[in-house]
Amino acid sequence: MKRFRRQHFWGLAVLLVATVAALGLDAHFRRALPDYAFLTGWILLGAMLVLTLYNARKKLPFLPIGNSETWLQVHIYLGFFTVLLFLIHLNFRLPHGQFEITLAWLFALVSGSGVAGLILSRVLPRRLATRGGEVIYEKIPALSHALKAEAENVALGAGARSPVIAEFYARRLAGFFSGPQNGWLHLVESRRPLNALIAGLDDLRRTGSDAERAMLEKLTTLVRQKDGLDYHRSLQLTLKLWLFVHIPLTYGLLIFTALHVVLVFGFSGGAR
């Protein structure tokens, strides 16, 4: 880790202490109150609700209820701790019934997507900043559109008199400019498609006339810009898409959890 911040240290320290304490308490309570699943259940549900409250905090930015940054730190560390609580609640065993398996899967997906999101949020911004060409996600289609118009104008417009370039444009560039491209390749930081296009343009340049060279120069710039936009689109979209798993499933999980509570109490005549 490039910068091991002090808050990381304290966060991890607290998490570690809490983990050890929880495991110790678990061993103790499992002896004293062998049937204490309801206790861990309520604690687990409480933790899950606190985690969900972060979403509410985001909707109330005008209230003085703590920084979002602090909330997120709590969210992350408590999230990890909640996974432990979950395992304790399950007594480190796999569930059996269809309902409980579904419930466990929901929990796993929500926490798994959370961890994935955490990694993405730490890795992708740095890559975006390194690449440069900062752009607001919602503006990308418009910018893309403008680039396409400009590229078409350069390659096919009234001033362009180069069948070679027009052919190259129709064959290689028209598709490239027509919409978002190479989402997955950008995510894995592959520059292959860009390099292929640039190489194609370079080939033409070697044989082209002066006028054609100027056009190719311009097209190269446009291709690079479009590639930069695609890169930003791919990474920024990924930074948004993981929440499409995390947030909707959270609410699914809460509904299943509510039913779980009803079943546990309705079918036990008490908390057993």
Binding site: F62, N67, S68, E69
Partner: peptide, 15 residues
């Protein structure tokens, strides 16, 4: 507003 600039307080990553 109570609590100061909302933008700063709303940033989840302290960015």
């Amino acid at each position: 507003n109570y609590g100061g600039p909302a933008c700063q307080r709303a940033c989840p990553h302290g960015a």
